[in-house]
Design a protein around this nucleic acid. Structure first.
Lengths: 345, 345
DNA sequence: CTGAAAGCGCTAACAT
DNA sequence: ATGTTAGCGCTTTCAG
């Protein structure tokens, strides 16, 4: 920050210039600045002052080359532009990396295996110390091939054979807790609106729902429509649900876009949320959940936390080859807005 | 990709191992692989084959150190987690960088000047060749201080004194074209719904709207409510607009979240979109625009294009100190969905 | 057309 | 406590 005017006396100032100006060797400068070797407090101080005065800034490339450690984490994501999910993961990763003195190098694969391979190669060439492999939707997918130079941790996806560290949302728990919320509000005629894809998010939430219903002595009813899980799917699901169960009072919806469709259907029928229909959802896409009227009560997917956990994990694993790779399910926070109430009857 | 099994004969394979295996010097390998020096076709071929066989991968850090060019672009964004905008900019930047053989190092400032300064320092220490400075909302803001080692290009924001290269959306044109669209559909009683913030997006769109209205011999009417520009603001604006102009047939809305509020208001009044009310908007946040019923006709903000343009610009500027920094306004594409129709009367 | 050698900026044995 | 020195892996004069 201080612009002493002394900076850059005819060229970039490196450790050598500092050494010269302080009247010591480069070794001493290195030691003084890193605090590693033994340097007298006096010289250390002088070196630091001189360095600051000269506006010295270490060249991390040079030290990376020497240390065989770049201080850079490779972040590969399958998709970055469609939802704010990617941003939340990146942000979490970003901030954790920053606290660990590391930086993120971000690449995107667009879910193309060829691009993925090429991008991982780029990251490897940049000597990244670890690889974060993030997917925007919870999936089970093999860990990326071709990165052997350090730990790999998967974010929002997991390895079929659980060999890589990974963190995913606890889907089943979401299902249980969402249903419990409705149950506690006094609902009995609850239906779960979802899509029929064989992915962990669908299966987990559904399983959790069934579990909670059965636990309450109720018959679970699940309406699964063809995906993708958007507002149109939500409308279709609602139509089918009401056809079969005209007296339902609450729905647990797979995700926020579908919930938006549920609201649309309710409006068209002149039924009010939450007066005539309570809804709990999953995602907390604020663009939807906070803008809907009434606000949507929904479980936040823990993208930020998954990103930061993954970085912490990766950082701990760097340099410890055989460390146990832990796989974690993250609990999801409920964001209460206005879409759940006691049933009328 | 080929796993010959010969790779890593007891350690990382570098240019030296390749040289040895091919029976030439490291110089020749370097020349052969980069195509720069003069090497006979035969040796060049042999070197390439051997390199591939050994699974050789250049260490970009080493070459960066030597070349004083890292091949890395610093990407600093003010906010990355709330909208998909950031993702689109990053994606555009990402892909352009990739085609130019460069990589992106992403940092986030959370709009905190202290964090910003620190992050830029980190980027500088990583020897990034250029800096991209992106904001998620179009603003006028001074170019970042403290980066003198290469070009800076601003994305979605511009320098008050226009010294840095920058690209922003052509807001005024959006205003003109949106209004023209409504005019062409036959509307006359049009109101512009916006917020009262002194930012280029608000002012530009509004100016364009007035221009188009005046050009059509109509009196422009603008309803600006207090921000932020969310669904609630859209509802408030709609209430005020209808109070003053009960017979309006179309609205040009500042952004998609506000348009969502406009839809909500219309539903509550039992008026249909686009039957009773046409709406044109700006953003193309697909989470909203494609999920509303009917789909929202809206101008897409050119985030992807801005990201890629910025990278191309930066790449061209690297190594050309005194090059002219161009500032550009990007035209925005209209995405037609179902929210505009001819007026009833 | 090919190779020897210097050096990018930093760190860490190994002296002193 | 401080300095000498040898590299990290690559590129590039400059000689041959």
């Amino acid at each position: 920050m201080p612009s002493s005017g002394l900076e850059r006396e005819g060229g970039r100032v490196g450790i050598r210039e500092v050494a010269e100006a302080a009247g010591v060797s480069t070794t001493t400068v290195s030691h003084a600045l890193s605090g590693r070797g033994k340097v007298s407090a006096a010289t250390a101080d002088r070196v630091r002052t001189v360095a600051e005065l000269l506006g010295y800034e270490p060249n991390r490339l040079a030290s990376a080359l020497r240390n065989r450690r770049s201080g850079v984490l490779g972040f590969v994501s399958d998709e970055i532009a469609t939802t704010p999910f990617a941003g939340r993961i990146v942000l979490g990763a970003q901030e954790a990396a920053s606290s660990a003195g590391m930086t993120l190098m971000v690449v995107n694969t667009g879910r193309d295996p060829v691009v993925e391979a090429r991008q991982i190669e780029v990251l490897r060439a940049q000597q990244v110390d670890a690889l974060l492999y993030a997917t925007m939707f919870h999936r089970i997918t093999p860990a990326p091939r071709g990165f052997a130079s350090g730990p790999v941790v998967m974010v929002n996806s997991s390895d079929p054979d659980g060999r890589s560290a990974s963190i995913v949302p606890d889907e089943r728990r979401i299902g249980r807790e969402a249903t419990a919320l409705l149950l506690e509000a006094g609902h009995r005629r609850i239906v779960h609106l979802t899509i029929d894809e064989a992915v962990p998010a669908v299966e987990g939430r559904s399983a959790g729902h069934r579990e909670a219903m059965v636990g309450a002595g109720l018959e679970p009813v699940v309406v699964a429509v063809e995906g993708p899980g958007d507002a149109a799917a939500g409308r279709r699901a609602m139509v089918r649900a009401l056809a079969a169960h005209p007296d339902l009072t609450a729905v647990f919806v797979f995700n926020d876009p579908m919930s938006m469709g549920v609201y649309q259907d309710a409006f068209h029928r002149g039924r009010s949320v939450p007066g005539d229909l309570s809804v709990v959802s999953v995602d907390d896409l604020e663009l939807i959940s906070a803008q809907l009227l009434p606000g949507l009560t929904t479980f936040e997917l823990p993208h930020y936390e998954m990103g930061s956990w993954a970085v912490e994990q990766a950082v701990n694993l760097i340099g410890e080859p055989g460390r146990a790779a832990s796989s974690v399910s993250a609990r999801c926070r409920l964001v209460r807005r206005g879409s759940v109430a006691r049933p009328r009857d």
